[in-house]
Amino acid sequence: MPNQKLVSSGGIYKGKTSMWLYIFHRVTGVALFGYLLLHIISTALILLGPEVYEGAEAIYKNFYFRVAEIGLFGAVLAHAINGLRIITVDLWKKGSDYQKQLNLISLVIFIGVFVPSSYRMVVSYFDLCLEKSSPGTTVTDCIIRPIPDWK
């Protein structure tokens, strides 16, 4: 078969991990597409001027959305790193011989990028919230307030 030349054709790794990764990749991919559509709409509001755009953005600025953003960040990152793993297995000649190792490396890279970034996203949320909110605001206020009290 002519197309066979395109891909690696080494050993077959029959772990269960890969099956779960397949499902995981599909779920994150479909979720990201859904987010992308919402995101294009909310970005389009910018044509309606600063009031409308910032009014809509204000909703995204409470702590619940920060948690959701971290989840989204994780989903993009995980789909991307798992995608790179897939690409490596497919297009590197020996890729399919090292699937277990590649699974492990992907996990390590994911944790190595995700943990510090999400830590930063949490810390900087509280820094900025305390700095911008009216005096007397506590960390608890920052967590439970549905809409921040600054503009």
Binding site: A80, I87, L128
Partner: peptide
């Protein structure tokens, strides 16, 4: 596979710009 490679730069880059180099709390018009 090819678009995936490019999206690593574009999508992951976009996320880093919005969340790590800036904070979405500062995001405005």
């Amino acid at each position: 596979r090819v678009s995936g490679l490019l999206l690593v730069l574009l999508a992951v880059g976009h996320m880093f710009i919005m969340h790590v180099f800036n904070d979405t709390l500062n995001l405005d018009y």
